[in-house]
Amino acid sequence: MVWSRKFICTRMTASRTTPICSLPARVTRVDHVCREHVIVTAESDQLPPSQPGQFLQLQCRDTLATDPSIHAWGPQTWPRLNLLDQTGPPILLRRPFSIADRADDGTANRFSVISRAIGPGTRWLDRLEAGMELNVTGPLGRGYALPDPDQTALLVGGGVGIPPLLYLARTLHERGHRDVRVLFGVQTHDLLPVRLSDDLPTNGHATPCLRLPGEASFPALVATDDGSAGFAGRVTDALRALHALEGDRWRRPVICTCGPEPMLKAVAAASRAMGSDCQVCLERFMGCGLGTCLSCVVRVHAPDQEKGWRWALSCQEGPVFERDRVLDYDG
């Protein structure tokens, strides 16, 4: 298992491309997929090839300057905007987004990101319309090392960590993977930023599917914290339940995960308990995404260092790390 992983890592590194800066892209589709979430699809012929797990830095604009709700109080108060705000001044720093999908049909090179409206920049994205321009830097970072086609791949995503796994699912499908299970955890039923092939079951039994190009699909299991759809509970509980049910049929399982920090820690622990490999996609505050602002640091094991660890930049060595490299995820 170790040798094959090494081989894959080498192969993935070799295929990493040089990012492009300040690329103008045209928004082709804006899909308000669920409450607070928007799928923004844009096209540009110049965006270099990318890997699942890599991210884009988007320049967002300020929508707040003229909005009276700037004085409203409370974390759930989202200012309502008017179209004039779309031309507001750029927000200083770009915002990082995992690539949620990527497709080239020969006539256009499209990519998607999924944004949840939580701040000035993401609120601007929420109000984009087809035909508008998006300024993009990327693709950046190191993505998931793709498992071998005969391995069982478990894609475990939570909330805003779901998007890179959608891109990963498409990539695995295109590379002929068949044994892929998708587990998505969200707080409640209307915060799931992806449309599955069937409406979410409320009895917890039926299995919806993640649609893929063509007629294909991967079985998907949805967990909601409040039990309003699918499995009632955390996605890690769903993972354990699934493992108990069919784990003996999994072949060299590898878990690819992305989500909030407590979830990643729980998935890392669960993957260790079930003897599975695990790659975690981390979210850290990023200033540049280019390896110079040094803000997105993560403690990784470094036996050659006196203290046994060093800081790694998640925009360069990550955002995807092998579970066992990250100090915070030690058992």
Partner: peptide
């Protein structure tokens, strides 16, 4: 090695590092 994170914050019109 540098400071513990969080190392950078965005503030109105600028960056605090």
């Amino acid at each position: 090695p540098g400071n513990e994170p969080q190392r950078v914050a965005e503030v109105p019109g600028g960056l605090l590092n």
